[in-house]
Each structure stands twice: as structure tokens, then as C-alpha cells.
Design a protein around this nucleic acid. Structure first.
Lengths: 193, 193, 193, 193
DNA sequence: CATGAATGAGCCTTCATTCAT
DNA sequence: AATGAATGAAGGCTCATTCAT
């Protein structure tokens, strides 16, 4: 209800554009508005009308995924076991980044192009911040881990998976292995014995 | 013996080009051969003669750093304490990546443009492989950590530091924090007595 | 009686469009129909329905001013002092061009887009022609000055003022200085006895 | 000797570009660098290398004419009859503007794109300023005429001629008529008696 | 009548690479 | 060897105009 509902034909074009962009992102092709227009069988102007910049389009592609992460973040906030809640949250985040190529660049970007993106990212990071705070209070994580580290670390894991390469089917396993190690390292160091 | 020795003036040009490229890399400017030529006060053709592609130039810029890493790897191989040796090796690698902007792209690239780069990267990874093998045998690291994970993980840490942002002076500290956690997580999980 | 009377809402839109165009002209922004539509809070189509081209809109903006010039021309025709009548007429014309940015392009254009504009321009030039004829007969102006020179000369003065630049408040003074000189030069040269 | 001499082939292209631009200017086509390239049978890049902007090209086209005006201005400075010298200078300037379509826009432009253009324009206007000063001292021109009026007035006359239209052969005559009147009006008004 | 989405020609500009000098 | 002019594909973006809703 934030935006005026689009006319039916315009909505169809909007969908087409986003679908084409989705495909391009999935096949690793950089988003170029002219290119998108050609593939969607639309005029360039149409694409520019809907998305002023490639970044705006990319963020739009990433939005559903961000929304689902936010939803998951809210669920995690309901978990009373602080350490577990944080780990689930982070795991889900990394899984998403590894699965959906649109996510990593949007997440790592220092500035957003759509207000909606900013909203979602803030919602996400504030959930992370709360979860981290609780986990720290519970003595479940290292004291030197701050909320400003969450995004970088998740991006780092996702990037590591990408550098590792390999079939996209295997990526998720690699991601789990890397994340498992990292999370283990982030837990409070118990004195041996 | 790998390359024909250059004429004295050609060698001076080669040096100039690499020095200019070094500066560009340091200031975060993307390497464009035309640009390099202009700044070096040389013709484009001269730059192309020495470096067929921007990547070749970038690899050349990164070479000294790679060489020093290889040297360090060899030293690490002399360390009898397997776990410590591996950790030192990895730490040094991450430090280098965070400190020298030419390193990350060369390290993460799936293919090399210069044979020398391939040589050095192989030397480096095989040192890593050996150190990892010893550490695993010594029971110092998780059994599921393979040598194919080393590069991705180091790149991931470096990338996380970059996403974290902040003054370049602080980067090295952030890198240490992240690496400390990761290394902790990579160690063999001891049963809590 | 030239145009079908508009429906009340259509008339309101027409007014809005012209008002917006007036503002744009005053602030020196080139008239773009899309732009006008946006600022008027109307659809592009509506603007196009009323004004087929930017020029038609511009002429509409200029119309009131042209009408007042025509009225003034008629008054001048009542003046029995031929030389003075012509000079007043020309002065008024230049003042208008310097004061109202919509006028100069319409005046200088070789072709019109609205019949009404053609009507007004013709009325104006024929007044000028008559005034010039009388002044010539009265021996008040150079014999080689023809009615085809009137528009160019007035446009030239207005253009000179524009090139001179400066605050819009000063423009009118500059215009007077330039016009004074020109009119002096157009008067019959008396032999210095 | 201000610029490095061009290579022979580059010089040929430079000439071609300027010649094409000359033609375009003469036929009243707006200068577009891509267009120029196509007509000259050259790559766009070549044109951009020589002329960074359309304005730079236009100024280059206008340069010879400006130079000849400057030369004429220097001759005029040698004339001891102050009023005549000024009038000749202005006449020559208007003739040039009417004859060469590249001149008017360059002359009227508030800012230049080539240093050479600025040089020439300054030389020209300072000649005009001196000639005007002498004429004023000699009591040959109106006291309220300042050197800041020279350019606007000349541009105004040229513009008037353009608005007048007609065959280019007749333009020069029209220009002379207009200028004659203006110069007459700029002379000191003698009391009739 | 009003709307505003769609169109796409057209312009600008950059840059990796080649090749004549 | 060195030079740097030339190339032109490629990408970006705007805007006047049309037409389905």
C-alpha cells in the first residue's frame, strides 16, 4: 500500500523485467538495463521508467529474499535459547547469500538505492544486533564480537564459498562447513579441563 | 633464466610501469593500461609490449608479495609445532591480503595470466597443503578441513575485513580478530571434560 | 468564436498548463511537454491534447503579450505625429521582448504553429508597416528603412540586451540605451548646416 | 610553437574533422561529434581525441576568422582618425559574423573551451576598448557607450541580419544598412542649427 | 476526455586493443 | 623498441510522441 498499484500492463512489464533480471543474476551476467530491455522484449525507456539504475533493479530482485530473512529474524527473536537463536539466524543468512546471487552485493553495499532495501537491511541488522546482545549476555559468544562484525563475517563466509567454487549443489555444504567452524570459533572459549 | 634480460632502457620502462601500477592499486583505481601509460609518461604500445593485459600487470605488481609469502611458507615448513606453523602461515597470508590490495584479486582468480604467478601460487598452496596435513595428523585441526579450503577461507577473511570498512590502519586489527575466531573454530573440538 | 468553448474541467487544465509553461519560460527552462505535464500534475496525453507541440504552447504563453502589443499598435496609429508614433511603437515592442522571455522566439520564428499567432503577428507588423510608411512620408526616417526591417531590428536589440547579460532589472535600461541609439540612427540625417 | 606538432596522419585527420565541421556549420547543422566522425569517415574516438567537446571544435573552426579580425583590429589601431577607426573595426566585425556562421556563437558565448579562443577574444575586445576610448575622447561617439556594449551590439546586428533572412548574398548588404544606422546613432548628437 | 506507460531513435562517452610511423 | 593515433563496439541515458486503458 506504500506505492500506487500499477496498471495491469505495466505490472506485467515490471514482472517481466524483474524475471529477466533474476535470470541474468542467476547466470552471473552483470545487470545492464539495455540488456534487460532487449531480453524482455521491451523498450529501454520502459526499463528505465521502472528502475532508474541497475542497482535499483538488483535490489528489487533481492527484496523477496531479504523479506524472508527478516521474517526469519523475527522468528529467531522468539527463541529463548540465545546462542542457538543467533546461530540459526546467521546460518540462515549465509544460506541465503550462497543460494541467491542477488543478495551478496546488496548486503555488502554501503549505500542503498531503494528505501525499501534500507528498511529491510535495517530490520535485519537490528534483529542481528538484538540476538547478538542476548547471546553475549548469556555468555555464549566472545565478548569482542560486535554487531558491526555480523554483516562482514556473513559476507566473508559467502565470499569464501564463492571462491571455493564447485557445483552450486555443493555450495550449501561448503557454506555449512565454513560457518560451523566460524561459529565454533565465535563461541566463548571455555577453559580446557 | 626464465626471461631474456631486458635492455637497460626497456628495464627502466618496465620498472616505471610497475611502479605506476602499484600506486594505482594502492589508491584503489582500477588498472587501465592507457591510464598507466599516461601516468608513466610512456606510449600505450610500450605498456602493451610489456604487459599484454591489465591482469598480467596486476599479477606483476603482486609478485613480490607472493614471493615473500612463499618464503614465509618455507620457513613455516621448518616449524616442528604443526598447529602453530599452520596458523602462522595463514595469519601471514591474511595480513598480506589486507595490507596489499593487489593480492586479493590475484589470489581469488581461478586462472592466471603469468606463468610466474601460477608457480608462486602453487608453491604457496602446496606449502599450505603440507602444513595442513601435518596439523591434521597432529590432531590440531578439524578433520573435515581440506587443502582446497585454505584459499577460500583466507580470501573470505580478507573480504570480510574489506566489507567491515574503516580506516586502513584499523583493518589489520579487524583481520586479526576475525582470523583468531576462525582459527579457534578450525581447531579440533575438544570434548568438554 | 474561433475555438469551441472548453468544458469547465478541460478549461481548468488548459489554464494550469499555460501557467506552468509561463513559469518555466520565466525561469529559463526549455519547454518540455512531459515536464510541463508533471509539474501541472496532469498526464502527458492531456498536455498533448491541448498543445500539439512545445511551440504551440510557447505561442499560447506569448499570446497575451502579443495582444497587448497589438492594442498598443492601434493606439499608436491614432497618433498624428508620425515619427513619434513609430518610435513609441518600436520602444514598446522591444520592452516587451526584453521583459517577457516567451516573446523573442515567437517573434523571430519564421513560421507559426497557431493561427492565432499568425493573426497577431500580422496585425502587429501591418501596424508597424503603416507607422513606418507615415514616418517615411513625413521625412522622419531614412528612406532605405523598409517594413521588412522592423522585426529584425527589434529582435536584434533584444538579442543584444541578452548578450549584454546582467541583472534582469538592468535589462530594460540597457534596452533603452541601445534602442535610443538605433532610433537616432534611423532618423533622417539632417545636413549639418 | 604552443602545441606539439602533430604526426602527419594525425594532422590530416585533424584537418578533415575541421573541414567537415566547417561544412556542417555552413549548412546550419548543429555540431555533433558522432556525426562529424561519420561524415569524416573516422572513428568517433578519433574525433574525441582531437576535440573533447563540440564547442572546442566550433571554436577551432572559428579561430582563423577570429585571427583575421584581431589582425584587422591591430591595423585599425594605427588609424589616427579615431571615429573612423572604430567604425571600420565594428564594420569588419559584423561582416565577419554575418559571413561566417561559426563566429556568432563563439562571440556570444560567456565562456570559452579553448585557451586560444579566450586569447583571441580578449585581444579583439581590448582593441575595441582602446578604439572606443579614443573615439570618445575625440568626441566622436556618445558618452554613454561603454566597451561592454560593443560585443552585444555587434551580436545584435548580426542576429538582426539572421532574422531578416534572405539569400546569403544579400545578407552583407542588410548588415551594412543596419550597421550604418546604428553607427549613425552612436555618433555624438550634434545640435541642429 | 484524461491518463501515463511504452517506445526507441538518437546522442553522448569510454576504453581495450591494434598498427602505422 | 617505442610511440601514440586510430578504432569502433559497447554502454549509458533522454525525450518527443503514441496509444492502450
Amino acid at each position: 500500500m506504500t506505492t500506487t498499484p500499477l496498471r495491469k500492463d505495466a505490472a506485467r512489464n515490471w514482472d517481466r523485467i524483474v524475471a529477466v533480471a533474476r535470470d541474468l543474476v542467476d547466470e552471473g551476467t552483470p545487470l545492464q538495463l539495455n540488456d534487460v530491455a532487449r531480453r524482455a522484449g521491451l523498450g529501454v525507456g520502459t526499463v528505465y521508467r521502472h528502475f532508474a539504475t541497475p542497482e535499483a533493479l538488483l535490489e528489487t530482485v533481492a527484496t523477496p529474499c531479504l523479506e524472508s530473512l527478516v521474517a526469519h529474524g523475527e522468528e529467531a527473536l522468539a527463541d529463548t535459547e540465545a546462542g542457538r537463536a543467533l546461530e540459526r539466524f546467521l546460518t540462515r543468512t549465509v544460506e541465503a547469500q550462497v543460494t541467491d546471487a542477488s543478495l551478496a552485493p546488496v548486503t555488502a553495499a554501503p549505500a542503498d538505492f531503494l528505501p525499501r532495501t534500507t528498511e529491510l537491511k535495517q530490520a535485519l541488522w537490528s534483529a542481528g544486533e538484538i540476538l547478538l546482545g542476548r547471546a553475549r549476555e548469556a555468555g555464549a559468544v566472545r565478548a569482542d564480537l560486535t554487531s558491526a562484525d555480523l554483516v562482514p563475517l556473513m559476507c566473508g563466509v559467502a565470499y569464501a564459498v564463492q571462491v571455493h567454487g564447485g557445483a552450486s549443489a555443493d555450495r550449501i555444504d561448503v557454506a555449512h562447513r565454513y560457518l560451523t567452524a566460524l561459529l565454533q570459533g565465535l563461541r566463548t572459549t571455555r577453559p580446557d579441563s
